[in-house]
Design a protein around this nucleic acid. Sequence first.
DNA 1: TCCAAACTGTGTCTGCCGGACGCAATTAAT
DNA 2: ATTAATTGCGTCCGGCAGACACAGTTTGGA
Lengths: 240, 240
Amino acid sequence: MSMELLWGGRSQPSRGPRPTLDLTGLADAGIAIADAEGLAAVSMQRVAAALGVTKMALYRYVPGKAELLALMLERAIGAPPEPDPGDWRAGLTQWARALLEAYLRHPWVLEVTVGPRPLGPAELTWMETGLRLLEGTGLRGAERFDTLATLAAQARSAADQLRGGADPEGQLATVIATVVRDHAERFPAVVAAVTESADDDREQAFDFGLERILDGLQALMHRRDASAHPGCEQPGCAHY
Amino acid sequence: MSMELLWGGRSQPSRGPRPTLDLTGLADAGIAIADAEGLAAVSMQRVAAALGVTKMALYRYVPGKAELLALMLERAIGAPPEPDPGDWRAGLTQWARALLEAYLRHPWVLEVTVGPRPLGPAELTWMETGLRLLEGTGLRGAERFDTLATLAAQARSAADQLRGGADPEGQLATVIATVVRDHAERFPAVVAAVTESADDDREQAFDFGLERILDGLQALMHRRDASAHPGCEQPGCAHY
DNA sequence: TCCAAACTGTGTCTGCCGGACGCAATTAAT
DNA sequence: ATTAATTGCGTCCGGCAGACACAGTTTGGA
């Protein structure tokens, strides 16, 4: 998977016919198909047909399908919102929420972003923006990375849950309810939890985990601040 | 995707030749291939060949490839460890760590578990076990689900990062370092974080996020306990 | 005891996929 | 005008999931 494509390291040629396509066009065509019919519908044939060209023409622009998917990913996640550097908590909330919304806009991104892959400028910009939000927090370098990873995982998980969308099929609660109806005795805790949360707002599934993560970060920072100028580390202060 | 397969709802026939295969054999053959060569190498042909049978014979046991993958998933994640019901924090730590280890044992599971899918007994047992650990915590039903989702997301994210394994290629830090070397000026915060955490223990990437999540949960419980019998809600108590 | 029903594994076929390769047409530099 | 570079295209290959018909095997009922 060549990096030059993602990082724009190619120079346009002088001789020969003018290219009728460009990389962003390829990516947009693929994104349109993936948004409409899912990632499985994105084939070289389909993308080429959408561009009015045969599939082999695409290989003049992209060495293979993997690179096309990488381009689609880069363009689909786009740029993170401008960070509000004053409040790290508000900034991270906005960052994670924007990531969630990007995932919901293009659910196939979840399928593309499994496993190690080359890092494109868009993805790296998300990381840069997130790291910048953590600058004044006293977290060490590795901890800043880990924080973003946890937040991104939360966004990803929520997007994965919300994927079924409007139809109650595919909703996790519905799936669980139908299965558990026939095996209630084996899963009492599931039954208890699902009946207790029968008609709850599933929109807040993301917020709950997010608030816990941010609370945990805040607790860590407080604890470190307190140990810097001591006076509050008693177990009574609830930071155990 | 039929549920009967996963939930064992098929009765063995009386007439006709004895089946030479069974569902667990199918799953194990697929798992062996996926473990050794990745999920992409799992085709009906390959699985059938591993069992000494033609590919069409598999369709006597499984309606399609999706169901075979579901069987593989169920068998690969297996059963969660027996919960220690005394300490919710220790229990959840053990739960999340076991999930991470399952992911690391079978990295292809990450690729199979994207998007909505039918819920098998193994997956539901993980959920049941996790919910049971949260029983005494005072969390509402939906909150218990969300807690497990956040923890599972953390395990998944860590497994995804650690996937490259021993070779330094594929390691996130290495990938970032090579890319950023040529574009340092555009990503100052990334450069700062990566140089600061140059030779850090990547094993603890999982633990950091996990501790933050658990800290956040603990803070929530303390806050609710405190509001039940008041006396500690001053901003000075660091629960903002 | 025999036969028909049920069930097995198999061979053949279709349509789709990603991609290798060579060819003709087009454009710019010489 | 010629040449080199580059384009889009047609053809071909191996592999994939799966539909379907078929022959062999086992058993229950007559």
